[in-house]
Design a protein around this nucleic acid. Structure first.
Lengths: 226, 226
DNA sequence: ACAAAAGTGTTCGGGATACACCCATGG
DNA sequence: CCATGGGTGTATCCCGAACACTTTTGT
């Protein structure tokens, strides 16, 4: 039991990690699903294991800024959605030293993540298939997945996964990929239009082998919903 | 810009603070409302100002354990509900030094908090009237209040405010106090009973000047809802 | 003409709301 | 017997789910 807390504060270190989600086709089924980039640890503990990208918090940067730096280092891209997930601080979550991790989660667009080439120690995985991560990162990933799937049902975060102009089918495909079930096109359309979160651009997407769908843009939000 | 992160980690210190809510009658209106205990700062920065109870995280204790210790020191009581709220880490939230605070929020019962005598530097305040706290604690308190009011509508956290055996009127009073509006007794009853979160004890509360209300207990939860 | 997806209309059922009304106790 | 809250019944509205049906393009 320590008593000299004030003179010995460096025993607890603080890290910021990020769960980065993107949508890509599943390697076997072809259905669009959630992927995330992981980094291979190059030193102990858990050397050689995959882990969430992260790093120590610098004294001169905010928590979200730290998460953005991590994401930039990993994928080379700026997230369209970045949000604090939870803080994990169990005493034994890291062997030897004591580390508290403040975890963020981010969403990036498929057209963006195409530019993100895998580095030598960075690789993308199907989120639901990931197991055996370093530290308590399995737990963190499950938690992030649950949060994403819950939040997409009541919050307009699906926009982070589509291009600035999109069809309602695009938006529906995002929901279907995240929730892993099909949704009624008619009802989905009505719900989205009724929510007032989209505005029609007036133009239509041509080149499809069927009726051209209307293009929409995200509406200027009168009241921000966290 | 620092580069020797590993050898100089004590520049960012980590604290755990707790927003503790209890229900008490409002001093002027008499209506039951939310109160919380605050501690007066006895040193700089913000000396003399009121602040949320908290303290540095010890290397040997988990985050929630740290919050419990703080709460025990302040009110002398164990919370019936303790939950992580959010982590605040803006660079300028504390002058001079850099402090990241992981904030928890707790709910205590009125019959418990009666035993919590105010210390010389501890005082209870009406939550909605509090302003001018130290650091960014005003922001934190607003955030906690919003979270509590949102969460009570879809999660059975009201039990944390009532005794083990309670009438449905007791439970309704909690909701009304937190949301600050009256609820239809008939509909409230049906919703609670339909939710399956309560079980009738079979006994009734006597001594009232009207029909004796049935007493209920919290049901054993088949599926925990966070 | 046909396929395929866009887009519209309609029905059905469950849950929330509002409110009338009866029940059981103390005074 | 009256006041007071406990407790039940019920009509209404709204919203989501299900699904039939029309529209508009490419091939």
């Amino acid at each position: 039991m320590r008593t000299d807390v004030d003179t010995d504060t460096d025993q607890v270190s603080l890290a910021v990690s990020t769960v980065i989600f993107a949508l890509r086709p599943h390697p076997t089924t072809g259905r669009t699903t959630l992927w995330l980039p992981l980094v291979r640890r190059i030193r102990e503990p858990y050397e050689g294991r995959w882990a969430l990208p992260g790093g120590p918090l610098r004294p001169d940067e905010d928590l979200a800024a730290s998460a953005r730096h991590t994401l930039e280092r990993t994928t080379g891209l700026a997230p369209r959605h970045l949000e604090q997930l939870y803080s994990f601080g169990a005493v034994d979550r890291s062997p030897e030293d004591r580390v508290v991790s403040i975890v963020y989660w981010a969403l990036v667009r498929p057209d963006e993540d195409a530019r993100a080439t895998d580095g030598e120690n960075v690789e993308w995985f199907v989120a639901d298939d990931v197991r055996g991560l370093a530290f308590d990162h399995d737990t963190i990933l499950r938690y992030a997945l649950a949060r994403l799937r819950a939040k997409i049902t009541y919050s307009p975060i699906a926009f982070a996964f589509v291009t600035p102009e999109f069809t309602l089918a695009d938006l529906r495909a995002v929901h279907e990929a995240v929730l892993d079930r099909s949704l009624d096109p008619a009802n989905f359309r009505r719900q989205v239009l009724a929510s007032g979160t989209v505005t029609a651009t007036g133009s239509y997407l041509t080149g499809t082998s069927h009726r051209p769908p209307a293009l929409y843009r995200r509406a200027a939000l009168p009241e921000e919903i966290r």
